[in-house]
Design a protein around this nucleic acid. Sequence first.
DNA 1: CTAGTTTGCCTATAAGCTTTAGGCAAAAGC
DNA 2: GCTTTTGCCTAAAGCTTATAGGCAAACTAG
Lengths: 189, 189
Amino acid sequence: MVRAGLTPERLTLAGAELADEVGFDQVTVSALARRFDVKVASLYSHLKNSQDLKTRIALFALEELADRVADALAGRAGKDALAAFADAYRDYAREHPGRYAAARLRLDPETAAASAGVRHAQMARALLRGYDLPEPDQTHAVRMLGSVFHGYVSLELAGGFEHSAPGAEESWAWVVDSLDSLLRNRTAR
Amino acid sequence: MVRAGLTPERLTLAGAELADEVGFDQVTVSALARRFDVKVASLYSHLKNSQDLKTRIALFALEELADRVADALAGRAGKDALAAFADAYRDYAREHPGRYAAARLRLDPETAAASAGVRHAQMARALLRGYDLPEPDQTHAVRMLGSVFHGYVSLELAGGFEHSAPGAEESWAWVVDSLDSLLRNRTAR
DNA sequence: CTAGTTTGCCTATAAGCTTTAGGCAAAAGC
DNA sequence: GCTTTTGCCTAAAGCTTATAGGCAAACTAG
């Protein structure tokens, strides 16, 4: 019989695609095996277990998202950078809802410290340099940006803005604009 | 044999408690049956299925949280009301992480329309009356508040603020303060 | 190029969760 | 007290995770 050519990397990528299609919490070792037309047990040579698969997908998504954000940020500053950062985040979540959900998986501290999550934090700080905030305000601001972006995207994906006007797009612009003026104000104090 | 006295209400409450103990996504019909020392099949006379259980817990949590927010808001206005609203939200999530997660379950439109989710939206709008925003800004602001509160709480629960200074408490105060001044500024325009 | 080793996917199996069908006894109604 | 209703039961099937052990394909050496 011909071998399927399974590797942790291919399984992770396929898992990410599966997550986007059916939702991250519907990603199972069984479903992944079906997708490769292979018996379930075969995957356990490449993955420790189901949790391992999910962690790999999460790390993959964190990397991919960090790359996108980095691209978006390149050569921009101030409000322009803020909007690019925000959009990169939101667009990724809308294009890849399953991967986005994966990126929110709680990782154990060591795994998190070695993940692209670190880059995310660094980029947020780089972005905020344009607003010249003293500590601890900068940290507060990093947390606020993370909260707003994650919160908005998560409510939007959950369909929270679907059944009312104005559209999610307009509110997003308003929110980004508000954050910009907020940060500029905080600088001035 | 003595009957256990199962009802949908008791099962929902026990399910909420279970969610707080082990996490909302670990709530299973099996675990609930164990908790009542009853066979699994017995629960299916009271619950349509596993999804039904989760929906009931979600609706319960939405009600409970709405009650708390209403209490917190009573007799307050302006920044005082904003802080009370924010704290009610965050405190509930920290006391009842499982119920909080349940409250974020995606409901089908009809169920959502009949849920306490409606009250949440109304209270947010009531809160914002103190800032005197014209439409569509008020809607944008409702969405922003929801995003920030949900985002912050969700990141905090996920342990995102655990391994760095300053504490989550201080950033929360900063965020609430920022939102207040942001909203006051928006009014002035 | 063939013999030995490693590797990859297999079958078999067990245990847990969901859900349905049908049974029997406790509680409620008359 | 007798009947009806209700509540929890056993049984069973299908799906998931996970482990153990087998056989053949692919690599590695001589």
